[in-house]
Design a protein around this nucleic acid. Sequence first.
DNA 1: CGGAATTGGTAACAGCTTGTAACAAACCCG
DNA 2: CGGGTTTGTTACAAGCTGTTACCAATTCCG
Lengths: 241, 241
Amino acid sequence: MTIPRLLIVDDDSEMRMMMVTYFQRHGFIAHPATSEAEINAHLAENRVDLILLDVMLADENGIEICARLRSEEDVPIILVSALSADHQRMAGYEVGADDYIAKPFNPELLIARVKAVLRRVRRSPSLSYRRATSVWHFGGWRYDGKRDEVIAPDGYQVMLSSRETALLKVLLANPHIPLTREEIAAALSDHPETDAGGRAIDVLVGRLRSKIERNPKAPQMLRTERGTGYVFACDVTREET
Amino acid sequence: MTIPRLLIVDDDSEMRMMMVTYFQRHGFIAHPATSEAEINAHLAENRVDLILLDVMLADENGIEICARLRSEEDVPIILVSALSADHQRMAGYEVGADDYIAKPFNPELLIARVKAVLRRVRRSPSLSYRRATSVWHFGGWRYDGKRDEVIAPDGYQVMLSSRETALLKVLLANPHIPLTREEIAAALSDHPETDAGGRAIDVLVGRLRSKIERNPKAPQMLRTERGTGYVFACDVTREET
DNA sequence: CGGAATTGGTAACAGCTTGTAACAAACCCG
DNA sequence: CGGGTTTGTTACAAGCTGTTACCAATTCCG
């Protein structure tokens, strides 16, 4: 676990430096900033784990800064403000702040809340924009969306019809999420109403099972959720390219 | 984006139902619970995105419950409490809560803070938190939550229906803890009120007994607690994988 | 202690959901 | 066109689940 890097944004120099030294003394890396320009300059050059942003800066508005940052970045932001009325807090949360802390604050509590946000952030892998890849792996199987090839764990290629392939793609896009027949039908077709009457999805599911399930009578991956629909109960990974 | 699923834990029935309906009216899926046993029972069977946990329950301590949940699970937790002193809030954050909200609270602000936590959580790959399924052992039996396989002590596989499996999971999540029929029904169903009338749970228990008890007439594991409900009187271990 | 009342067990049943074989229509491609 | 393939429909069988009814077990209470 690396040391968390904070950016402390406050235009009151005494408060700013007090916070910086306080966090440093508690094992954080903390840098000061006083304006949106400084935030941007710092972000351009440094990794930051969390921004502590005062809402009332000299002639800038922390809420607006937060909104602008959020429109581009996913950096966690905790707003700090002497304005503690509910509607002011709401405004902070509405522009995407992770927390809103009223001044004056208990320094220990501030650290606890910073840690709470970091804990949550650290658990989620950083969101990185990844080029869409077309090769999927699931339970030993491999599906190459570019060539439309489905390869079984034993290496043999399995031939799927176009409809079966389409169903597989829908399932791969929604692993572990129960899908109703209606949702599947809608995802498969530009004319969802076509499937209105009948059991088309059931039959389609059955046919796909017969090709990709080892024992179609006791499906491991393409499970039935009685009363709901079907779930693809299988971890899916997209191949890095 | 799927609808967020909340679990509202409060022992004051008026407050609990008020919150549940309020969240439902704002587009959330919300389920009530009153105790740690109910939380476990619900988590065993349902996806949950966030738990709103009252700190002062009848004879349980929300802080301790939070600590126990956190020691195993990564489900987001917001603590709610009438105790708003700094050291009490600190205690909440220290056991891993994502936020700590004082009662009485502004309902709109509560929703804003719930959304703030969910926003942060949603970056993670799996949309909804689901209790980690692994392999469970109990009295010589083995249940593989991933494959949904139940293996008897003699090595043979026993086929359970989906409802029977769901019941087994609830029991495994609460060994040695008496569960009322209502708690079981609530964990098994998205619409607890459906089971209102009848003996569905009794019959379900009977069917499960007939499959996993050596002598269903004198159940060793799935015991009846007359006047209360049922207990899973069996040590359960979760295999580390 | 004994009879009534309460509580739990379960067989039987009915309603509903799902699986799938069989058929027919549509489609594809030479 | 003409054969093979794919796909939706239908019909039936099988399975799942809640309800009811009845009986057994337990508890209550005079």
